[in-house]
Design a protein around this nucleic acid. Sequence first.
DNA 1: AGCCAAACAAACAAAAACGCTCAAAACCGA
DNA 2: TCGGTTTTGAGCGTTTTTGTTTGTTTGGCT
Lengths: 264, 264
Amino acid sequence: MSQSFRQRDILEIARAEGRVRVEDLVTRFGVSAQTIRRDLSELADSGWLERVHGGAVLRSSVTNIGYEDRRDTNEAAKAAIAEACSVAIPDGATLFLGIGTTTEAVAAHLLGHRELLVVTNNINVANILAANRECEIVLSGGRLRRSDGGLVGTLTTSVLEQFRFDVAVIGCSAIAEDGELLDFDFQEVGVSQSIIRRARATWLVADHSKFERSAPVRVGSLRDVDRFFTSAPLPEEVLRLCRDWGTEAHVVAPEAEPRERAAG
Amino acid sequence: MSQSFRQRDILEIARAEGRVRVEDLVTRFGVSAQTIRRDLSELADSGWLERVHGGAVLRSSVTNIGYEDRRDTNEAAKAAIAEACSVAIPDGATLFLGIGTTTEAVAAHLLGHRELLVVTNNINVANILAANRECEIVLSGGRLRRSDGGLVGTLTTSVLEQFRFDVAVIGCSAIAEDGELLDFDFQEVGVSQSIIRRARATWLVADHSKFERSAPVRVGSLRDVDRFFTSAPLPEEVLRLCRDWGTEAHVVAPEAEPRERAAG
DNA sequence: AGCCAAACAAACAAAAACGCTCAAAACCGA
DNA sequence: TCGGTTTTGAGCGTTTTTGTTTGTTTGGCT
């Protein structure tokens, strides 16, 4: 929330006019440009505005910034995982695709598949797969979570109960050393459990960075997973657990991407 | 994402007019052609526009071609209807927005509203309204119908039953002389009835061309409608029915658009 | 096919905007 | 009033934006 009267006013102006300019605000408030820039940066950091050169505008992108950034991280790894996962999915399958950038990458790799029935609680997956005309898409209902395009809430769970999936492809925010799958949103617990129960096979897609992270909510365990697609050799401990639990680990090597990608 | 005010404006112009020309933008913004080209290239790189010689056009997104065409028809009328409808919707309302290009136009006009709760069975509405951070969005589940982005099927109905709407804004494919609302998909019948039952007020948005069309399935009647926003005076017969049924007809005049638009 | 003008992309330099840092000023509770 | 914190403004090097110039590509025309 705004820290000062000025920031509050700036927000007001932005809402009224759609945009604010540093220069205008300087004269309007009689403070230095630096101060205004600081205000705008803070308002941008807390998500109220979007910074542009010379000022700021009301935020109006589809998903939030953090997500767009996240989508870019480990892009190559995600693509490789998605590729491996998608070739293991036969035409004609009934699928579930969950929330997360990696499952979205899987969706993008399913554009060539035929006669799929895909159920998802991820609006981005739906938008992506809409390009595949041979794919029936069912969206679970629910509240749209802007941070990642997920549809969450009890609606989602009740919809999932009506299906029986050949394969459920899920992601997670982090993987603990003891094989627990972690997420940031406790609402995901019910959804995950529902999915695992309704799927003949549960596949986890998660790049190696997930081992280096943590998250507060336990949504499941690698024990519930039949196949685990990831991008680097598993930690010793986790590998042992997978053996014990019969979880097939598929380690894929990301395509070398020699060209440096300029920040788009 | 747009880096500058200008890019944002260009996008806005593109959305309004379907395309932009380098030359026009040069005079409009008073910058060099090279700068405009740079803008267009960046907007194209990030997927917002499609570059063509001499300018750029809107990228056709999720939905299919026929729909994109339809979206263009009576654009001015739809915008005027949407404008009138949206100003009648108070901040903080709980809304339902149905399937159709006109309801999508309403969604676009709700971007400035605050604290809305919008339930929809139209994925395009969700995509549009995602830009309004002060708007809670709930998607009904269902099968994604590519032809118009609608979510259809029994899932939709069961989700709708869980809400009570202040206003339900619906469209239809055609309006018969006897005041019946017609559609092409019989699955819509259940959804429409559900919506009308769950809403304190039902508003119909439909431009005048709907009187000149027909469609096979009866999804409801003007009798069920509390307000009817349209773009040309009603046929005598229909007007009389509205009076009898207490249906408020709001006839709006589309903004005159003097410039001829070439087919995009 | 060949020609021409318009549109285009790349490179470069000037100008504007930017972020960082530090010290002065304002503020605040005791 | 005092000590500590927060806010602010100015200096300064860096980054971004922009117009110009150059040479290439494209589209229409004969």
